[in-house]
Every structure is written in structure tokens, then in C-alpha cells.
Amino acid sequence: MIDIENVSKIYPNGSEGIKDVTIHIEEGEFVFVIGSSGSGKSTLIKMIMKELNPTEGKIVINGIDTTNLERNKIPYLRRQLGIVFQDFRLLPKKTVYENIAFAMRVIEAHSRHIRRNVPTVLSLVGLQNKADAYPNQLSGGEQQRTALARAIVNNPPILIADEPTGNLDPDTAWDIMCLLEEINRRGTTVVVATHARDIVDLMRKRVVTLNKGRVIRDVENGGYFDEI
């Protein structure tokens, strides 16, 4: 589903973001990417999203080779990916419902599908009663649920979460992780870059550990690697 092969990223200022990283993620997997700040997690996520281009190597997402992808094809690559950020990135002037419907409008979905799908994902993330609320009327957890709902409303095969619990208290963080697991159970491939040691240890999923831009550990049913 996601094939990252011998990928390196050297920034224009000469600093190395990622060095010779190879990761293969199968359809339906749940993978944690962990590592300290500056280990290259965000660089990796940005390259998967094609916000950054690798200096070397190639990345294939759901059969699409992103290496030489034309600019006007990038939106169609991103439609394969649901993306969740640490800072939620909701539109403050739109309600919860509108924020989610927005993701469907953008891909020119039919209004009928919007009216059907948005309430469905809202109840999946447990926000059916908050449809008309604005983001600033929601708690952090609720905002992240909204962001999650937006990420999955178009039913993408892959969900990428970059520090999804970074701004949340431990209980709420756990709820969000459970929600991610639930989404994974429904068949979506989930990749989570995180710092949340306790959660990684508890969930016993595949854990890829990055250090200084290299993969130093890649284990099934792993925990947080103590050496980093």
C-alpha cells in the first residue's frame, strides 16, 4: 500500500532529514512511526503527502509512483490519503458539519452523497450532536474527532496522522487512538507518527523507530524503544 524505497531527503541548507529509508506497509496495516524530535518523522509524512520531494529513492502510494508525479496530479494522490494533524487544521468559520462536507465538496462529490456520508462519519466519531457547533466551541478532543471525520469521509484507503494526540490530554489521546484503531479495523491502512510512549506500548502494533533520519528498528507488536 505504501512502498518507501531507499528514500533520502537533503534540505537545501544541507541538513539531512531522512537517510536511505525503506519501509513497506501492507494494505490494512496499523503502523506507528516513532522517534524523537528531529528524527525525520515529519519529513517522512510530508514526503508521503508529496508536500516534499525525496532527494533520492522512490515512494509508491496505492500503486501511484509519486517520484515524478505532475503537479496537477497531486490532488488525486491526496484523495487516496486521509490526513490528520496535531493542530487539527479546521476552518474556524465553518461548522463541524461544514468542515467535513467541505472535504467532500472539494473532490466534487454529489450533494446527495454529502448529505448521506457526513452524518455517518459524525456518528462514527461520536459527534452527531455537535454538527452545528463551530470549532472554537469544541474541546481539543472533539476538534481532533472532527478532523478525523474529515479525513475519512471520502473513504480513503490510507489514513496518515502526524502527532494526532500531541495537543491532547492522556485520556482524550487514548480515545483518539481507539478511534484510529476502529477505522483501521474497517479496512483503512493507518500510519501514525507519534511521541505518545504509553499508547504505543499499550497498543502492540507494528512500530517503526526513526533516529537521526534512519530506521533503527521495525518490529511487529512492538513498544516504545527505550534507547531513544
Binding site: M49, N72, P75, R79, I83, F102, A103, V106, N154
Partner: peptide
């Protein structure tokens, strides 16, 4: 945000 959700 529009770019991230795949808007052309």
C-alpha cells in the same frame, strides 16, 4: 486545508 484534502 483545501490542498491537503485533495482540491485541485
Amino acid at each position: 486545508i483545501m490542498k491537503y484534502v485533495g482540491a485541485t
